[in-house]
Design a protein around this nucleic acid. Sequence first.
DNA 1: CCCCCCCC
Length: 562
Amino acid sequence: MSVNLTQGAVEALLNGSPLNNIVLQLLNIRQVVTGPGPPRFRLLMSDGQHSWNSFLLATQLNHLKEENRLVPNCVCMVKKSIINKLSDGRLVVIVMDVEILQSAEETGGKIGNPTPYNAVGKTSSPQKSASSTSDLPDSSPSAAEPGPSYMYNSTLSPPRGRGREFVEKSPMKASPMKTSWTSPMKTSPMKTSWTSPMKTSPMKTSPMKTSPMKTSPMTTSPMKGTSTSPGSSTMLIANINPYQSKWTIRARVTNKSNVRTWSNSRGEGKLFSFDVLDESGEIKITAFNNEVDKFFTLVEHGKVYYITKATLKVANKQYSTLKSNYEITLHAHSSIVPCDDSQGLPAVHCDFVPIAELENIDVDTLIDVIGICKSADDVSRITTKTSREVSKRALNLIDTTGKVVALTLWGEEAEKFDVSGKPVVAVKGARLSDFGGRSLSALFSSTVMVNPDLPQAFSLRAWYDQEGYALDSESLTQTRSMGSGQKTNWKTLSDVKNEHLGHGEKVLLSVLKVNTLPQGFGVHSGIQRETKNKHRRRRAERMTNAEGFIQSGLVALCSRSC
DNA sequence: CCCCCCCC
């Protein structure tokens, strides 16, 4: 059996050509040093001509390594990758989607005699071993990472009572990471919001780790996984509906709640819910009482299942960002069977809303946002109306629109958040509030992802490190505590002049408190009227200090033209 | 059959 490697692919990739569906041989795989959290695997790949050791497996593909599918000498098709340039100029290739075409046994050894590719454009000296994993500087393994990727879900505490508290569900933190990604993602089309497909080839050599299906939901056994599409055997989530009782979906669990109890006039009981995703869409599934006992431990985040025989009902969109018009309720005859074939199933689906657009979206809408966490409040404890204490922490997220919005995390999620390295934060299903203008709050059902392996995350990282960090950003969220401390972004009057603050639409209210204005700074009489507004006057006073510095944030306070 | 999501 033979496969052809895509000769020249390594060189082309590293010269910036976005290549999809290239066939490479894995020569080595090892874990790079990270802190707690999901491991990162670094791959030495060969196209038969050149090898390159700075391929990184996207963390959502870690299962391929953990299931011993990605072993040295196997031949893979790298279906999708993202090229990143580190601040020191080194290139890393993030493998976003890979399919194993041929096992190591079948391949039988190294193909050809590849030489390590040199980033400068030459192959390195021939005396170096082609299979060495140290043919490139490896002084800081973490520098080859796109960031410590981790994720939490906001979930409820175990069913012990009313004491609801955020619980970090997937503590997948990695070490702090200061890497500066400097290259824009040429291979990251931003148009699509379906990200990080996790396609894997059905492995003939991989025995089923899960128990065989007790029930066969299909006429043709889906366990064979012999075709690249679900074919006639399963239905897509987008196509199921309440009028059709016979359906089976194959889908990945993307969000799983804890068990919760309820008690109301209609009765009491317990439930848990989870979201599942396939290539067509996503849908929420809820299990009650007996079905909780039956399925709670079986259903695992990230895993793929065949799901059949359950009730479809119209979804209440108020509680979900999922696209489906329906949701699923499990019943006594429902079947959930693990599936070994995750081919074609994305890891996550987000419809990120640009931060600047939040101003135009109705309050209480559930939305997905991605941004750089450029700063964060300290964790604080608040007491709720029901006398519970809970931690909270607001993150300030900025995206390429240049606008900032505060996202409040709660409970353990707030306490565990690591702001160092100004990580990319993606939140799925946050609720938009109008506090301070516009702000966001993470919900029990929200998913907060830190440095996720998403093309949008890589793009944002590059944007921020190149230009975004220097932006005089404007926050949609005005907090009363501004101006009270070190978080304040003070500007000198020369900054105001150089950055043309106060020109155009905006007015600088704070200038009112400056005793002596240098040449070139004028105060429009209209401002006096505005300051008669008690609220605004108070803010203006706070935002001006004795040295005649003003705070850039207050530019947003007034929209009257000078 | 839940749908709680907290505070400024």
